[in-house]
Design a protein around this nucleic acid. Sequence first.
DNA 1: TCCTACGATGGACGGAATCCAAGTCAAGAA
DNA 2: TTCTTGACTTGGATTCCGTCCATCGTAGGA
Lengths: 137, 137
Amino acid sequence: MSDLLERLRGRGWRLTSQRRVVAEVLDGEHVHLTADEVHARAAERLPEISRATVYNTLGELVTLGEVIEVSTDGRAKRYDPNAHRPHQHLICTGCGAIRDVHPLGNPLADLPTEQRFGFTVSQAEVTYRGLCPTCAG
Amino acid sequence: MSDLLERLRGRGWRLTSQRRVVAEVLDGEHVHLTADEVHARAAERLPEISRATVYNTLGELVTLGEVIEVSTDGRAKRYDPNAHRPHQHLICTGCGAIRDVHPLGNPLADLPTEQRFGFTVSQAEVTYRGLCPTCAG
DNA sequence: TCCTACGATGGACGGAATCCAAGTCAAGAA
DNA sequence: TTCTTGACTTGGATTCCGTCCATCGTAGGA
């Protein structure tokens, strides 16, 4: 994590206590938290941190490529701190839980030029869906 | 489209003018409309149709597998009438436009058992992102 | 034609995220 | 060290999507 703080400082970030706490929360648990969950955990350490700041900071981390935003249909977005290792997601359609997965193959290579319609395609994201053992019951 | 109406009637749907209009809108343009856009187009033909009805009908069509719901990060969901032909999506990160694409390969087969963590995986969805020719300038 | 259960209505409501104007403070300058 | 300033934070208002609910209307069978 100090790595992350170093990197951010190197990019000209002003290192505030709020940003430090948000970064620490993300680093601390390798799960996929919602913005509200990040806010709750951050508030344990820094009681008066505001929601807007959490949203701002998460957005900045996403822009910098330090964190990945995972949208799960209608529910709140979740934030994935594992941004530097390419991976895909497996989402439980029951409870919204997310696991990182590493499928074989290269989806970007699977899209032929004539299927790109002139787009500058920069990213391929694979989302697997199903029921987790608990929800499948 | 009369196909669709037939199918729905066969499933016990009560065929109201509202449902007919929504179905016609989806069939009429093979683009990916938001619920609001569907409502606007439906209202041209049936001025007093309510937003709640459009949402209800779209939800039913999705449940019946006649239409696919495409979530695009924070923006409004879009509805894809092309549900009977398997395909993936290419989304412009600039303007949100969506194109149907047909990549090679089979992403479901690319997820090894030991990567499934006990989930009952039922679906693999691939989303390509990039800039469309217009947004790329 | 009449009945009735299913569907439509629209305004209130809810969650998620963004906006904004005012206040605060990190960090470079002197 | 203190000063200065613009970047950052705050929290309440606001927007955007979508759902809920009590009431009214109507499709389609009897």
